[in-house]
């Protein structure tokens, strides 16, 4: 419990900064929606005529950007990018920082098992990620709601945030898993964000070219596509399974490898 509370406290400041940033981002994006929507409905027809590769490269896909939810769907990718960077860095640093800051001998000579310490740390990271997600959810509902003239889109937003939460968890555990396995604790954050950037770039490449279609199973950014989620088809079972597998693998990796880890003092 002590470790849990201590971690919450030491990540409080950065969590507040992240939350303020995401709220500002949402607000900024949506304030311009009003001006944007005035370009009229003729635009909508033109969009539908665009070839897929072209839509992919602009990140629109089948989204109708003149509707509030379609517009929001485009920015969803940016929210996800921010949220996953936060999660990956948090996951990697919460485990590796003891060695980095040379507090590891202090902590691990305390009468608590490694498993217990890791569990509290992961729980603390989980709470951070959850708070970040809820902040995004609430501010999205309020801000999007203010611009929405049609029917309620809250259920769509909740679904998107659900998808974002799964992605956040995935990258958080990738972070902890890498922190537990790498020899050099200092590199843990770099490696996890490297993986994140690589998969993000890969998801863009998949958008551009049909030939890379198969790679969409490798990059988590393609698991939950805003356009598919909003269009009412909901989550695809295979991606849910894949996400659960990734989370399971990396979380067990964290515990198993950390237990045997030769701590760097």
């Amino acid at each position: 419990m002590n470790v849990f509370l201590k971690e919450l406290k030491s990540h409080r400041k950065s969590l507040i900064i992240w939350c303020v940033c995401i709220v500002l981002l949402i607000a900024m994006g949506m304030t311009k929606y009003g001006a944007f929507v005035k370009t009229g409905e003729s635009v909508e027809e033109m969009f539908e005529a665009l070839p897929d590769a072209m839509k992919g490269i602009f990140g629109f896909g089948t989204l109708n950007i003149t509707e509030v939810m379609g517009y929001y769907g485009i920015f969803f990718l940016y929210f996800v990018l921010m949220a996953t960077i936060h999660a990956a860095m948090l996951g990697a640093s919460i485990i590796s920082k003891e060695e980095r800051d040379k507090t590891v001998e202090f902590l691990y000579t305390k009468p608590a098992t490694r498993n217990k310490i890791i569990t509290s740390k992961i729980l603390a990271a989980f709470v951070n990620v959850l708070i970040f997600n809820i902040t995004t959810l609430i501010s999205s509902i309020i801000i999007v709601g203010a611009y929405n003239k049609g029917e309620s889109v809250n259920s769509d937003i909740i679904m998107l945030m659900g998808a974002m939460f799964i992605l956040q968890l995935m990258f958080m555990f990738i972070g902890t898993g890498i922190a537990a396995t790498t020899k050099k604790p200092k590199l843990a954050t770099s490696i996890s964000t490297g993986i994140l950037l690589f998969t993000y770039m890969l998801s863009i490449a998949v958008d551009i070219s049909d030939k890379l279609e198969k790679f969409k199973y490798i990059t988590p950014f393609k698991y939950f596509d805003a356009k598919i989620l909003i269009s009412g088809e909901g989550f695809e079972a295979i991606y849910i399974v894949l996400s659960v597998v990734i989370i399971a693998v990396f979380s067990s990796m964290t515990f198993i490898f950390y237990k045997k880890r030769d701590l760097n003092v």
Binding site: S14, C21, L25, M28, G29, K32, A35, F36, I74, F75, Y78, L81, M82, I85, M89, S93, K97, R100, D101, T189, S190, T193
Partner: peptide, 27 residues
């Protein structure tokens, strides 16, 4: 500065998203 990467990633991506938003909304 305890750790370099959060600082640099935060600022670079902040700027990138700001720019992406800016050009999407024509500001």
């Amino acid at each position: 500065i305890k750790s370099v990467l959060p600082v640099s990633l935060g600022i670079v991506f902040g700027m990138y998203i700001l720019n992406a938003l800016g050009s999407a909304i024509g500001d």
